Amino acid sequence: MSLLEEAWEEALEGLVVHQDRQVVYLNPKAASLLGVNRAKVVGRPLILALRDHRLEALALHGGERLLDVRDRLLWAKALPGRLYLLDETEAQRRLKDLQEAAKTLAHELRTPLSGMGPLLEALTPRSEQEEEVLELLKAEVARLSRLVQGLSPIQPGLRRPVALEEVWTRLEKLLGERLKERRVEVHLPHTLTTDPEALLQILLNLLDNALKYGQDPIRLLSHQEGPRLYLEVRDQGEALPDYEGLFLPGRRGTQGGLGQGLGLHLVRRLARALGGEAYARREGGENVFGVSLPLD
């Protein structure tokens, strides 16, 4: 047995190799996840090993999906002649628990935050410096309120035509000196009909992620494809080992390391609530983090 075969025999990820709809190989983990005897399915029709027409269709046509298969949540990814399987049951349970905890946290924070705004409005600054500090405090309280709203079940607000240049003006005020210290290129010529507050939070989180972990130049741009608008933040940072995983709560962009980051997770939740999707990838030497949203 070769070193590669030994590695797959011990892998925590399931692998099914097939040719002409026949099973050529499956490792012990795949046999366990599928609940089959390896000796009885190798050399037999693929459906006998998978025992699920959705898995068979995925294996034959390619793609990736999260499927509920025999009381397990399996993440299945199909490439020509290969089907990879990963048990996501426990991870999805932890994610559900985390979402419930986030809802509780949002509920507990909402009351003190709602009281801070009026208190700040009641203050009278006595100097230009105090006025500047007060405005920054108001902006931070507003940002925390939006973050708390993001932890709650997403319910987009009133939608209206929003010029992206208008959103950029607000971002400049919120990020202030952090933007001035970096090389940021902006190209946002489009207008779309959406919830302006949710859109602001999406772009704020994407930019914050790039400012923390990316390398200059950082590019914020929009482009249209059919009925959808793509908003992207691109930077020159090193390629990351796992882009999709960064959208899970508790992940941060520092070389894909673990942390308490919720920014990209909230970006995806907000994008989906607006009828879109969030994505990340490596393209042309840049790390690309973006969302696609319906123009109307």
Rank of each mutant, 00 (worst) to 15 (best):
L203E: 12
R269N: 06
A11G: 09
Q201Y: 12
Q99E: 15
M1N: 06
A163G: 14
G250E: 04
T89G: 12
R182Q: 10
L293I: 10
P249K: 12
G284F: 03
G284H: 05
R146V: 03
K180G: 09
T194S: 13
V184C: 11
L248R: 13
T193Y: 12
P294G: 02
L246F: 08
G63S: 02
H223A: 11
L293R: 04
E244T: 13
A39N: 11
Q92T: 13
L60W: 01
R269C: 06
L136W: 08
G157F: 10
V141L: 09
L123N: 00
H223D: 02
L164N: 07
L274K: 07
L174N: 03
L274N: 07
D20L: 06
R44Y: 02
G257M: 14
A76R: 04
L199K: 10
R251W: 14
Q215N: 13
P161Q: 05
A49C: 01
D87C: 07
P217D: 00
G245T: 10
A30N: 05
A163T: 11
G276F: 05
F289L: 11
D208W: 06
R252S: 15
S152N: 03
G176M: 04
G285A: 06
D242F: 12
A280H: 08
E130Y: 05
R44H: 05
R110I: 00
A7M: 14
H190Q: 08
P80V: 01
L60G: 03
Q215S: 15
L113Q: 00
L50T: 00
G285T: 07
G226H: 03
R70V: 00
E283F: 13
E197H: 12
L266Y: 07
L15I: 08
R93E: 15
E140R: 10
A142P: 00
W8D: 09
G81Y: 04
R268F: 08
V36L: 05
G290Q: 03
Q224D: 07
K180I: 11
Q149H: 07
L295P: 09
L262C: 01
R51T: 04
A39E: 15
A101S: 14
E10K: 13
V184F: 06
R94D: 12
D20H: 08
P196N: 09
V162N: 06
Q255G: 15
L199D: 10
R178D: 08
K77C: 13
A59K: 00
G259V: 08
L98C: 09
L274A: 12
A59S: 01
L105C: 02
T193L: 08
V23S: 00
V23M: 00
R65N: 11
V267L: 03
Y279S: 08
T169I: 10
L274H: 11
A163I: 08
R269H: 11
P80F: 01
A142D: 09
L144D: 01
E108W: 04
G259Q: 09
H187D: 15
P28M: 07
W75A: 13
D20Q: 08
K96W: 13
T191D: 02
P189D: 02
G275F: 12
D296H: 14
R54I: 01
R110A: 02
A278N: 02
S32D: 15
L48K: 11
Y84D: 04
E172V: 12
A101V: 08
R228W: 15
L86Q: 14
P80C: 02
K103P: 07
R82W: 12
L175V: 03
L58T: 03
P156W: 09
L4K: 12
D195H: 06
R251S: 12
L86W: 13
I218D: 07
R146K: 08
